[in-house]
Design a protein around this nucleic acid. Structure first.
Length: 117
DNA sequence: CCCTTGACTTAGA
DNA sequence: GTCTAAGCCAAGG
């Protein structure tokens, strides 16, 4: 039961994350077409946490679990079962982060505030 | 319409 | 390495 478009879009993206891979809130938000809405991605996952949505494959920047409490423990467990390796509480994004197809945000052709990195 | 909440992120101390 | 502050944005009250 689709609730909102935002909701649907985000979940659709999360569903595309293959098993054994992970993505970050920011990346999902961007892939869904809403760059800069990482927090809302978390909000959406919270309301969708279920079988149809591999919510555990979405982690915070740097490959850190941002879900507190047992939920976080559960998430880490599920990921490890999928083959994702942790390194001192962090996931090696270099190796497990899923790269979405060249899908530039649809809201505006592009948006790379990319600070002086 | 205003205010609060939150599984976030980045930058600075 | 840790902690704090500010920026961000959709939803719900």
């Amino acid at each position: 039961m689709a609730k909102t478009r935002y909701f649907e879009r985000v979940l659709a993206v999360v569903r595309r994350i293959p098993r054994g891979r992970v993505s970050t809130y920011g990346a999902v938000a961007h892939a869904a077409g809403f760059p800069g809405t990482a927090r809302q991605v978390a909000w959406a996952l919270r309301g969708a946490a279920g079988p149809p949505v591999p919510w555990q494959r979405v982690v915070g920047a740097g490959g850190r679990i941002r879900l507190p409490g047992e939920g976080g423990m559960h998430q880490r467990l599920l990921l490890e079962l999928e083959g994702v390796e942790f390194s001192g509480g962090r996931i090696r994004l270099e190796q497990f982060e899923h790269q979405f197809p060249g899908q530039p945000g649809r809201r505006s052709a592009a948006r790379r505030a990319a600070p002086t990195r």
